[in-house]
Design a binder for these strands. Sequence first.
DNA 1: CCATAATGTGAGCAAATACTCAGCTTTCAT
DNA 2: ATGAAAGCTGAGTATTTGCTCACATTATGG
Lengths: 210, 210
Amino acid sequence: MATEPKNKPKPRKVPVQTRSRATVEAILEATARILEAEGLEAVTTNRVAERAGVSIGSLYQYFPSRDAILAELVRRMRLSMSARLMKASAEAQDMPLAEAVPRLMAAAVHQYETEPRLTAALEQAEARLPRDPDVLAERGKVREAMADCLRRRGVADPDTAVADLVAMTRGIVMMAVSGRSVDYGALRQRIERAAMGYLTYDASPVEGGG
Amino acid sequence: MATEPKNKPKPRKVPVQTRSRATVEAILEATARILEAEGLEAVTTNRVAERAGVSIGSLYQYFPSRDAILAELVRRMRLSMSARLMKASAEAQDMPLAEAVPRLMAAAVHQYETEPRLTAALEQAEARLPRDPDVLAERGKVREAMADCLRRRGVADPDTAVADLVAMTRGIVMMAVSGRSVDYGALRQRIERAAMGYLTYDASPVEGGG
DNA sequence: CCATAATGTGAGCAAATACTCAGCTTTCAT
DNA sequence: ATGAAAGCTGAGTATTTGCTCACATTATGG
């Protein structure tokens, strides 16, 4: 339960038989469902094991700690998001800005749209977890691809622009998700407006801005 | 540590002497410092008491639970933010959009700028806490004032616009805060660009944008 | 078959946590 | 000065948590 840094990433068994692979999946699935329904604090190892229908001992044969389960879920989500964004970037390669942006925004929103509560909880968990190098590397590639996309259209400082677009999108989606029900169609349109506005806005010289 | 709803908002003493008022402030201050340095999970009642230099018994004379301490901190932050935004709205009343928006954005960012990590932690705590009616009421007034500000300048659907602007701002600031060091001047400019872009973007068909 | 490895079990331990209580000290009004 | 009220104390309780371990069950290869 300590909040201390992970000083013991003890090695665990790797599941080789189909039975044990199913066990691992059941544990991850149970964790996701608890996260989704009750949030990060409700995820305890005993509860996960119970919900997964396996014993607590089995859980600890494949995951060295509670955080390791969360880390694996975070990892899968991030890699999935990266893959989706890479695909969208490739497809948007030759489109005009006004068509490329909606495509990229749709890809960025997809994960929140399909699993809003789970995604929010996983992002919260991610903040307290050590950075996953693979995730960082993939994210880097994605940002690069998206920045290229913008650079080709003459957007200034495309790296900052990508960071801002991602952040704006997350902000708007997270706020929507925290509310009751969401019209994702309207939401995507608003995000497209925010993105296109940001990208095309020309800060004309308003002097004496004090 | 339960995530269950608060079924026992047991009444506690109200501090009347200066000594006890100082105790209460010390408890809140200690909680803020722990939150800022180590995040939400590190906030335990025993640690707060120790850091505040008071006994655990004293803590429980003025706060019925751990969450009550967090709730009070959240409350103060939210009311302070609302007050600042109301003031900015009033001052921006008669300014043109290009001047009003920076003023409003500066007010919105101020809290994150002065206490970035604490603010992030408090927002995380807020998500798990019961809604404070006072905070909700003040927030409603603020949104109304800001929406009025926009409506006067002919912005369509000003309520949605305010919600989106707030969400975008939060998204960009939170992302910046999670990084190493932040240039808040540049940050404010980017947020102004996002806001102005959103507000002035005309989704007319831009043909042949290759 | 059977030896060996892989997998599964769950009672229970050590540590942490939220919170109480019985008694002590300080403040204050008179 | 004095009694009552306000404030303070911290060892202790009940519970929860992450996690281990000695042992039982199942699969696999020869």
